[in-house]
Amino acid sequence: MAEIKIAAEPRENFGKGAARQLRREGKIPAVLYGHKQEPVHLSLPEHELFLALKNSNVLLNLDIVGSKSELAIPKAVSKDPVKRTLEHIDLLLVRLGEKVTVDVPIVTTGEIASGGLLELVLTSLSVETEATHIPSSIEVSVAGLAEGTQITAAEVALPEGTTLVTDGEAVVVHVLTPAATMVEDESAEGAGGESEGSAE
């Protein structure tokens, strides 16, 4: 995982007006909470935060003005629904060695056997891992998998120190038979045509 140092400033003005003013200044309002401490209201530089969030499960090393540095992971990021620009972020305070539950994206490697069609059923796995050693991704090898084969969450090899939270019986990847898929599609189309005819 990536650990990125980012400047943070305490903020005392709240509300929508104050948040809009911050964003005009190129800063994003943030709230840091956790460990039964009072929430800390901060502002973070928009550009640096945007780049940091491009890293999956990034660990932020917050260099807070007038206070000590803190480690945090993003818990909720709000974006403008149209512009997709950052609007607000909630951060969870973490400590060295502490365990957290996070969703880690799945990356498939290798090529399935000829003739099959790979279906990625789950795009991520929920795992428990050390807050300072969150894997950026989990690799699932599909090399040589034949039609009809599937891999469940319990069969995925996890990084050392990481335990599975997702249901172990959940299917992660499945190799479909293209011919069977086409037959199902044609049957569905036929059923739709009959329905239309009866409606007339």
Rank of each mutant, 00 (worst) to 15 (best):
T101W: 00
I134T: 10
A179Y: 14
T166W: 08
T85V: 14
E98P: 12
A8R: 07
T109W: 00
L122M: 10
D63G: 00
D80M: 07
L22D: 04
L117T: 02
E130G: 03
I6E: 11
G161H: 06
M182F: 06
K79A: 05
T109K: 13
S141H: 03
E70A: 10
A154E: 13
T166L: 08
M1R: 06
T149W: 00
Y33Q: 05
E139L: 14
L145Q: 07
E186I: 15
G97D: 12
V77F: 04
L164D: 01
A76M: 09
K54A: 11
S137M: 10
P135C: 02
D90M: 08
H35G: 04
A30T: 02
E130F: 06
K68R: 15
A199N: 05
D90G: 03
K27E: 14
H47I: 11
L145Y: 02
T101D: 07
L96S: 15
E147V: 11
G168N: 05
G148Y: 12
G97W: 03
V77K: 06
H47D: 14
S56K: 15
Q21S: 09
L44T: 06
V58N: 05
S114C: 01
V40T: 11
L71D: 03
K83N: 13
S126A: 14
T109V: 12
L118P: 02
A8E: 08
T152C: 06
I106K: 05
E196H: 05
I106E: 08
E38P: 00
G193E: 15
A30W: 11
L44D: 05
I28K: 07
L176E: 13
G110T: 02
P10A: 03
P10R: 14
P74M: 11
N61A: 15
A131Y: 02
E9H: 12
E128A: 09
I112T: 03
S136N: 13
A191T: 13
G161C: 13
E139K: 14
G190W: 07
E155A: 11
K79D: 00
K68P: 00
L122C: 04
F14L: 13
P10I: 03
G97T: 11
A170N: 08
E169Y: 05
D167T: 04
L60W: 06
R11M: 10
N57A: 04
E200Y: 08
I6A: 04
T181C: 03
P10G: 02
R24K: 15
S137T: 05
K36W: 00
K99G: 01
S141F: 04
L44N: 04
A188S: 13
A157N: 06
L62E: 08
A188M: 10
P45S: 12
G110F: 00
V156I: 14
L125H: 07
K83D: 04
S187A: 11
A18Y: 11
V127Q: 06
L92T: 02
K79W: 01
V172K: 03
V40H: 13
